[in-house]
Design a binder for these strands. Structure first.
Lengths: 342, 342
DNA sequence: CTGCTATTTGAAAACGATTACATAAACCGT
DNA sequence: ACGGTTTATGTAATCGTTTTCAAATAGCAG
């Protein structure tokens, strides 16, 4: 069932049928109705791949996610999706399972023109390659980023937000503060570690290398690394964890060691995933504007696809420290922190 | 940069270039190398959409998921993905956010030949339409299903597994057992409810309609419905919850009401998501073979795409009751249940 | 009714690969 | 060296749209 069949039935040319479908205003009311009736009668469906082939656009954008399981990305995705659908783009997802190789495979779909553009929520593959791709195809980075790359990027300031989280612990009286990082080949891990260290330095607290343990984002690794910290000769009294998942794992490790959160060890996470406010005790954490990151990224991608020019390329959105139970803070009537920990 | 350029440089016809790319064994070693060198030199990338257009296949399959956030589907997806990649298919994801309308939109991608086949993890749209699609395109159902439909399906037996879960609570001495269901327009919800009721009936326990509350899969709804149950004149002593997320919400509601799990109210969930073994107290739940459901579904889809015939169309995989803390069971040395509840 | 412009339409050429068919080259046994 | 096979290559048609360009028609002022 092709356009030609419709054309024959409606007694017009395929050109006219095509126009009815794509720019209806160009064809007279009478023929338009005739054609639409024919389409209806034949139950004709345009062959989308043929159209894509001819027009060289797919109206599909792809989002590359490092881990579909991670609750954090759901909010970002939702933002992307909503903005995309509103603009007649379909969104498809590619899950790399934290594997840079998979990331490259998906990126090559751009080369192959299978999608009109791409939002990367992970940027671990080769910098040069990425730069080259981004020069030739619409690409936006969100959450993660890469230094020295001229690609439009939406993220938060990971250094200052980490610093803020650690400063909060320091304000509560902690000085033996540990940090469970993400994998060090991910730039976000390095950034948050730097923020952690900056906070220590500016408060004249010694940087104890034993207090830094590298996790892999998973609950389990948070659990394991926390056990290591607890078994130190002088265990930390507080720990800042790269993300909420690992923070939850860490809390479990603390509980199972017969210790209490926050009394024995305070915990601060990152991302403010839903579970942070569900888990007992509730997680103190840094909230990222997930949805806004998503919409902003999609907005930029659309401009790129439409070859609109735009001045600002890097967007740094706000973040917020959400004080709950695991840090042990208490806010008194004057709305000031109560230091409750040696 | 097209095939013709490569052909010219290598001094062969486009047919030969095409053959080098798709059936290398058909061309002599000498010309093959010549062509590959030309491809290399020009950095030629085949235009995939053109190829798709000509061959009428995309080598892409789509998985339609009701909710990307739900931890349960991650395992299924992983199974699908691994089997697909092993067979040279790309997987893309479509998240319907539990919206049947979105489900239909994605399904129409099949009509448009944008994907070679589809695995539906949700089947809420019109039955007739689905039947019609499945008659003409490769479609496999997994997890959810639809009655009276001849579509290949992979799932567990939701009725008997629910019955098993509730029977477990009864064996522990409970008779005031409530059930927080999923949305009743989802067949799985109706199945598990039926299993719940069967267990009651076969143990001569009265079916108290007040003990049945409909949730919407979310943690929050589990929380809210549990509060309702607690505030009943005669609250239940145990609750079977449609999924682990809502079970976690329910546990939080119990805790916040000053009651204990499992002493005051026992809880059994469903799915065995990762958080079930992380949350305190650990969740007793029904484990589904997520990964196997995924691989099996993809295996069937591949057979469909390749037009292989296969006898068995419906696969019902095993499930397992995982006894942890929230049901209050204790297994004694003889490996038998200890009844610990009036 | 004529001539001029604006609006609709159609014929045919793309788009870039694959592949059926034909032909040329290579190989082989006698 | 010759026919007969097998193997390797090229020619050209094809997939189903969109779009350019030209032609036809309609609309309208004088």
């Amino acid at each position: 069932m092709k356009m030609d069949d419709v054309a024959k039935l409606a007694d017009v040319s395929t050109a006219t049928v095509s126009r009815v479908l794509t720019k209806p205003s160009m064809v007279s009311k009478k023929t338009r109705e005739k054609v639409l009736a024919a389409i209806e009668e034949l139950n004709y469906q345009p062959h989308v791949v043929a159209r894509q082939f001819r027009t060289r656009e797919t109206k599909i954008i792809m989002v590359v996610v490092p881990d579909i399981t991670s609750a954090f990305f759901a909010g970002v995705l939702r933002g992307i999706e909503h903005y995309a659908v509103k603009n007649n783009y379909q969104v498809i997802l590619a899950d790399t399972e934290n594997n840079p190789e998979r990331e490259r495979e998906y990126i090559s779909l751009l080369y192959q023109k299978q999608v009109d553009g791409m939002i990367l929520l992970t940027a671990r593959s080769n910098q040069q390659e990425l730069a080259h791709i981004a020069d030739n195809y619409p690409v936006v980075l969100a959450c993660e980023y890469m230094d020295g790359l001229n690609i439009p990027t939406v993220s938060i300031d990971n250094i200052s937000s980490a610093r803020k989280a650690v400063q909060h612990l320091i304000d509560l009286g902690h000085s033996r503060i540990a940090h469970i990082t993400g994998p060090m080949d991910v730039i976000l891990s390095r950034d948050r570690l730097r923020g952690f260290q900056q906070a220590l330095i500016s408060n004249d607290i010694e940087n104890n290398p034993l207090y830094i343990q590298e996790g892999d984002f998973s609950i389990k690794s948070g659990y394991n690394q926390m056990l290591k910290l607890i078994s130190l000769e002088v265990p930390p009294s507080a720990v800042f964890v790269f993300n909420d998942e690992m923070a939850i794992g860490a809390i479990n490790a603390i509980k199972e060691s017969g210790l209490n959160v926050p009394e024995d060890i305070a915990v601060v996470g990152f991302d403010n995933i839903e579970m942070a406010s569900i888990f007992t005790p509730n997680l103190t954490t840094i909230d990222q504007p997930k949805y806004d990151i998503g919409t902003k990224a999609m907005e930029l991608l659309l401009k790129l696809i439409r070859k609109e020019t735009f001045s600002k390329k890097k967007y740094v959105l706000d973040n917020q420290l959400i004080v709950r139970q695991t840090c042990g803070a208490e806010i008194n009537a004057n709305n000031t922190l109560v230091k409750n920990k040696i």
